[in-house]
């Protein structure tokens, strides 16, 4: 039997009180197994980002249990040695006062004992090559000197540097061009196949999720309304929300909205 990476039972997360009370994650039960790519798909405000933050240990459940490898998340640093994240907006993710390279190296800060300087440099070089960037291309460069696509690759390079066991990818493709998107997905697949990483991919585009995932979780208003293998979910969707998400994609081969 495969190990469970995340295991949530009747998990609830709410914010605020009184008039401002809202439940972002509402009684969710699921598990994610070792080596899977699971996509959380839903529109804005469906609770997928809050769930992602729970996986990173940044939020604790209000009620219910949320376990990582069978235990609740207590020590953040220990957790982040194994679970890392790629964020949505690559431009705001780096400190503009330091070179890209030094910031990729700074990722080693999460380790209890840093490898030797030589090994760190080598691992950064290898990580850059893994995302098809020659180390010389970013040598001495600052974040604002790179394009959006390049920056998103740098975030992925950081993951290649750290090689965590689990990656939470929070809408890594929503701020980049359609043509860079295919690239990002390739690298996610590479992380899975070469480093056998478990990946949680968060997106509002079911089309993207379909390409990379082993399983899809469709979320709506804090609940998982449907889950299953991508073929099954996309070809015979059971929830109206899944149908909605599928219909909303402007696919070239399908009727979308008719102009009067």
């Amino acid at each position: 039997m495969q190990n469970k990476i995340f295991d949530a039972v009747n998990c609830v997360r709410s914010f605020g009180h009184g008039k401002k009370f809202m439940t972002a994650v509402d009684d969710i039960t699921f598990d994610i197994k070792d080596g899977e790519i699971v996509s959380l798909v839903g529109g804005s405000g469906c609770g997928k980002s809050v769930l992602a933050k729970m996986m990173l240990g940044l939020y604790k459940p209000t009620s219910g249990t949320f376990l990582y490898r069978g235990k609740p998340i207590t020590d953040h640093k220990a957790h982040w040695r194994e679970v890392q994240s790629v964020f949505q907006d690559p431009f705001s993710c780096f400190n503009q006062f330091f070179t890209i390279r030094s910031q990729l190296k700074a990722a080693f800060g999460i380790y209890k004992e840093k490898p030797s300087d030589k090994e760190m440099e080598e691992r950064v070089d290898r990580a850059l090559l893994a995302v098809n960037v020659k180390p010389s291309e970013v040598e001495g460069k600052y974040p604002f000197e790179l394009s959006g696509g390049q920056m998103q690759r740098m975030l992925l390079a950081r993951i290649f540097v750290l090689r965590p066991q689990v990656l939470i990818a929070d809408e890594p493709t929503s701020m980049v061009d359609a043509c860079v998107r295919a690239n990002i997905l390739d690298y996610l697949m590479k992380l899975k196949h070469e480093l056998s990483m478990t990946i949680v991919f968060i997106t509002h585009d079911i089309g993207l999720a379909y390409y990379v995932s082993d399983r899809l979780f469709i979320m709506h208003k804090g609940k998982i309304v449907e889950q299953g293998p991508p073929e099954e979910v996309t070809t015979s969707p059971k929830s109206e929300h899944t149908v909605q998400l599928l219909e909303d994609i402007p696919d070239v081969n399908r009727e979308w909205i008719k102009r009067a």
Partner: peptide, 25 residues
């Protein structure tokens, strides 16, 4: 052509067609 090749689709028939990114800048 390259742009269209990089596009993704949720269509089941399209899954066999792998989207290819345009290399370079």
């Amino acid at each position: 052509k390259a742009l269209m090749g990089a596009m993704l689709s949720a269509d089941a028939e399209q899954k066999t067609r792998k989207p290819t990114a345009i290399e370079g800048a």
